[in-house]
Design a protein around this nucleic acid. Structure first.
Lengths: 340, 340
DNA sequence: CTGAAAGCGCTTACAG
DNA sequence: CTGAAAGCGCTTACAG
């Protein structure tokens, strides 16, 4: 492997100059720079990242943490962030929590992240009280996406979950529904993420605005997946008279709900209306009514929010938080309740 | 930041011994190891990865390259690989080609991968003639998943694409279809991946076994996405009399086909049958007939295939290739052709 | 089983 | 604008 000394020798300069020239620092004369570039090209020289990192103190890598990889929202955020990050010359280390508390602990309380990256992107990652200290101790710039838990001093890129839930619920209420169920994420314990809490809040808020007291029997918690939506809907049907409409906190949950309703002999939307949140790629195929959120934009903006402080050597001010707009997309899974 | 010298001083040993004790090397006495462990714990010491990498020559990181992140197959492979890799203590650097030749070139012909990882996982990554030299020059153990292009000396984890296509086509033929269209990936140029070629081959093979000569007008190329399936189907309808059945090379393409057929006023399966490959999470919701392939298992096994050579210091023999089984899953999107 | 010393391959003040 | 030298924080023969 050719090293910096080889290039220095061939170009007839010091290694310090090679280092400067190759990194594009301004304090190198045009002539010298050209000589170095040519020597490097001729030898096929590429600096060792490990050596650069050790000497320079920067890893040029960012850790992206997601609760799952496959769901539409997360994979879309990662895809968008990946593009922006690589374009800016940063490596992307991917960490999946997979819903396992063990993985979460490993990430926060072992050497997993220690000096491995220059910045952190936490996507819908739940943090309990003591976890903030662990995150802060890393001393890195960071950003949260789709507020798992807001980290003090970090910007957050997200949608207004309360408003999104309000829009979905309002759509069902305006159609005439009064017996509306909600399928959402777990918002009971310390690790609940604000997304779940906010979507439930928006739902209940609209209900109360119509003089309806939220019925605990019509509120089921599940994971943000098709399987979660299936299970929650089965539970709902088990509890007695089905609702006339279901507001699911994600499109994947909504699709699971539709599948289970149909298997139970109920028609959508004739017997039960279903609305989700996301505007998943397949929602158009399924004809699912939903509140669309811009996932790719969130990934892109989150990466962008990191690049500022990263370029500013970690000292610059944190980027501002941003709240992106959502939009009701009416398709075929919602309709007025049956007249009977 | 505490460094190895601090630990050595506190434990009353040399840094060499600290290094050995912390990494669990056998050549350290029990008593010494305990003293070192305690000192390290007391100081909250974690070795600098950059320093370890430079001194040790190993990065303990693996690069995973995918053509896209969001599609079901790729996100599922990545999720499974991530779990296995992190469990084994390796970082996962994610690279998305995104269908861009520029990204592909950057990955292969710049410093992107150089000395950054100890191994490579190429998922459905197309390689042209000269690219093999670029990959080989990295001198790393590797594995391909879902054969983009087989790399000499690397194991490949995949399904039998010819057999999967045969099973799908046979299902349609057995139902009585004779006018069957195929929507597949681009298999025309040098960068075509074997998946596309093999699925088309299995399709044509079965057709010919029934005495049917494949009709170019019923063969459309597209990307492996819902949008791709939509576009291809629109093109198919534009070309004249619709087929009575469509074999799409992926479930996402199949879903796009279904959406476009319905928008054109055609019923599925009454007017047109549609079958895919994958068994995507939502295929059950949509009622899509498909040839199921185990995506998570492929990701897991590919990671496993890397861990062998990785532990063997990169010299051990390559892991064996593996071909996983597929399975026809009949749902509601396929039926006999109309009698008329 | 343990230590002194060299080495991994860069970058960064410092001096000029 | 450029160079000599120290330093980044580990691991690895080598010797004992």
């Amino acid at each position: 492997m050719t090293k910096i000394d080889d290039v220095a020798r061939l170009a007839g300069v010091s290694t310090a100059t090679v280092s400067r020239a190759l990194r594009g620092l301004p304090t190198v004369s045009q002539a010298t720079r050209e000589r170095v570039l040519e020597a490097a090209a001729q030898l096929g020289y590429i600096a060792s990242p490990s050596a650069s990192r050790l000497a320079g103190g920067k890893t040029r890598a960012v850790a992206v943490v997601v609760p799952r990889i496959t769901p539409w929202f997360f994979s879309t955020v990662v895809e968008a962030a990946e593009e922006r990050l690589h374009q800016a010359g940063y490596d992307l280390l991917l960490f999946n929590l997979g819903g396992s508390e063990h993985a979460r602990q490993r990430l926060l309380y072992t050497s997993t992240l220690h000096r491995r990256v220059d910045a952190l992107m936490l996507v819908a990652t739940p943090l309990a009280g003591r976890d903030f200290a662990a995150v802060t101790r890393l001393g890195l710039p960071g950003v949260t996406v789709s507020a798992g838990t807001p980290v003090p001093g970090w910007p957050c890129v997200r949608i207004d979950d309360v408003a999104a839930a309000r829009a979905a619920t309002e759509h069902l209420l305006a159609l005439g529904h009064r017996r509306i169920a909600h399928i959402s994420g777990d918002s009971s314990d310390e690790l609940a993420i604000s997304t779940h809490i906010d979507r439930r809040r928006g739902f209940q808020e609209r209900l109360r605005a119509y003089g309806i007291e939220p019925d605990p029997a019509l509120d089921v918690e599940a994971t943000f997946t098709i399987a979660g939506g299936r299970g929650a809907t089965a539970e709902l049907l088990r509890r007695g008279e089905p609702p006339t409409a279901i507001f699911a906190a994600s499109d994947e949950m909504a699709m699971g709900a539709i599948a289970t309703l149909r298997e139970a002999g109920l028609r959508v939307p004739e017997d039960v209306s279903v609305i989700g949140v996301d505007d998943h790629d397949v929602s158009g195929v399924v004809g699912l009514t939903t509140v669309a959120q811009p996932a790719a934009a969130q990934g892109r903006l989150a990466a962008e929010a990191l690049l500022g402080p990263l370029r500013g050597a970690g000292d610059g001010p944190a980027s501002p938080s941003v709240v992106l707009p959502t939009r009701l997309v009416v398709r075929d899974s919602t309709a007025p309740p049956r007249a009977d």
